[in-house]
Nucleic acid binder design. Structure first.
Lengths: 184, 184
DNA sequence: GTATTTAGTATCGAGTCGAAACTAGTTTGA
DNA sequence: TCAAACTAGTTTCGACTCGATACTAAATAC
């Protein structure tokens, strides 16, 4: 069976989606809305826009705009206009949004299931899946979405950490977040 | 980050879903319809019913009934009434259905991406994901859906292979398929 | 021989989705 | 400099997903 890996990922994703659907019922949140919320809690200030969410989820911007509108109406995120570029709206996860994520993400039973792996096995699983994801993203020509500190543009200077792309200073918290401009 | 593994699976699944959506356009097939079709091509005669598909995909039977109706209307599957139990309808993948799956499943770019793994790595990835899936299925109390020949009820006798649950004879092709009654 | 259970279908309303048309702000370049 | 091209985001449309609920028909229980 050459398609076993495909099958395994699909099935894990189906279970995950199902549990996510259940977890979202308390607030009336759909799985995709929770995914968007989760992404927004992990990304940096260059990547917290409608378009970045669109790229991350691999949907169209009209669709994503709808989902974000619902998240805003439930006050799980807040829209903040960009100071410099008035076209851009930053999406900030609110306290209520973070609280929801803390409770539900990742789903409890998934976390339980992971404990069946040893520490080494868990590490190895992550490493292997990262490799597959990276190749797959490359094959589909999609934005990579990596962690800031591992990016080509991330530069440590005597004054602190700098993004060579935006020429802005970055804090040690900043560089832990996901960036849509990530380049290996 | 404790939720890294969760994130990786979600992202792989999103990419997969996107490519599946694209592949399905030629026949106007939605991702979930393709998943049902694919499942039906891999399952045995005890597991090719609406209810089995429902359990496999983790949805409700009403929803699945709709998707299967569409697959039937496109003559990708055919409904065959069970001889013994007239409530049961078996869902058989047609030639056209198999042809579509051959072309599209698993998606080409995913298959390409897998080649970035060595043979050993691919084997190890499968082993680890199987372990996670198995634990996760157990945690959620879902049907296991395993391959017939590895099932507790599968018994090799001098006369051939037997299912101890249904007491029916199985062929060597039969025991390669997925069964909803699978028990470790 | 009625009551319960099981397999599957039909219908509803809320939400997802892509496509396309739209507004508004920014950049480009003659 | 200022119109054209581009970019970020929204709105609307129609097809589809999804769970919930109510339904039909057949099998089983007792």
């Amino acid at each position: 069976m050459n398609d076993e890996l495909f099958n395994l990922i699909e099935r894990l994703a189906n279970l995950l989606r199902q549990e996510t659907r259940l977890e979202g019922q308390s607030l009336g949140l759909q799985p995709i809305q929770q995914e968007a919320l989760y992404y927004l809690s992990t990304c940096n200030r260059y990547s917290d826009t409608t378009l970045a969410v669109t790229e991350f989820l691999g949907l169209t911007k009209g669709t994503v705009s709808q989902s974000l509108k619902i998240l805003e109406s439930k006050t799980l995120i807040a829209k903040v206009k960009d100071k410099k570029d008035k076209r851009i709206t930053h999406l900030k996860v609110t306290e209520a949004g973070l609280e929801f994520l803390m409770k539900t993400c990742p789903p409890q039973k998934f976390t339980d299931a992971i404990t069946s792996l040893s520490v080494d096995e868990e590490f190895e699983t992550k490493r292997l899946l990262k490799k597959v994801l990276s190749s797959y993203q490359h094959a589909t020509g999609r934005t990579a979405f990596g962690v800031c500190q591992h990016c080509k543009f991330n530069r440590k200077t005597s004054d602190g950490i700098l993004c060579d792309l935006t020429k802005e200073a970055l804090s040690s918290d900043d560089i832990m977040l996901i960036c849509r401009e990530y380049v290996v």
